[in-house]
Design a protein around this nucleic acid. Sequence first.
DNA 1: GCCCAGGAGTGTG
DNA 2: CACACTCATGGG
Length: 282
Amino acid sequence: MRFQLRIEPLDLAMTLGCGQTFRWRPAENGAWTGPLDGQMVTLRRSGHLLSVEASPGGRGVRELVGTHLRIGDDVRKIQRALGEDRVLSRGIDRYAGLRIVKIDEWECLCSFALATYANIPRISKMIETLADRFGRRIAGDLHEFPSLEAIRRAPMAALSTCGLGYRANYIHDLGRQLDRARIEELKRLGYEELRSELMELPGVGDKVADCVSLFGFGRLEAFPIDVWMERALKRLYGQTGSYRKLRAFATERFGQYAGYAQEYLYFNERARARKGSCDFSK
DNA sequence: GCCCAGGAGTGTG
DNA sequence: CACACTCATGGG
């Protein structure tokens, strides 16, 4: 099936290829392809529309794509609000098409537990291996992210041979400690309470809790701080110190859209390191 | 070979 | 509270 969707602004490479989500791959002519709730989906820009392709008989794809790309976010309005910040206002429009994504809660939790002390290519590879071994096959060699139930069935010995390192224990223990009902409970919590509950889980500290709050549970006020963000906060705002302190600064400064501010700063800091250009300070 | 990575867990001062 | 150390390993 094939249809078009109006969703603007949207830059697929920025949104799907830079560390929010790990399973989309660039295809031909600027298209991106990846699994979405058990279906293989291909996205491509055509003018001001988004062209969507999915397997024949694919059900609810329009809603799946809309949800994943947070079609309800008024990104222009968010940018105007954040643009009142003197630092962000200098370069925020370069990232107009960068959207926050919405990922399945369980997949997001596992993905960012795996993301501890690893780089993005490696995170993608770990997730791909897990999917190949424990996820339902979709088409070709593309597999779904393993369900909670599949991970619960997986022996520790099997998880240990997926190249996850010490993170294999996190995944195994997450399976032990979670079930569908618990995830549903978590969805109903406010951000601060959600965050502290997530931090009770194995492999979930400050940073992973904020990533999962933001990308998995859709809490736009969350502001994940990794090594790139520490650099950005120090360089652009002169802020240093503990996670608690930096997070308090971000909450005070960026408020309800802190998650978007974080993505702009994160993207900018990484782009700057790669190319030496593209910088809010210029 | 070296450096680093979307850190967490644990122990200590 | 803040630090210090360890954890296991592939990508650049």
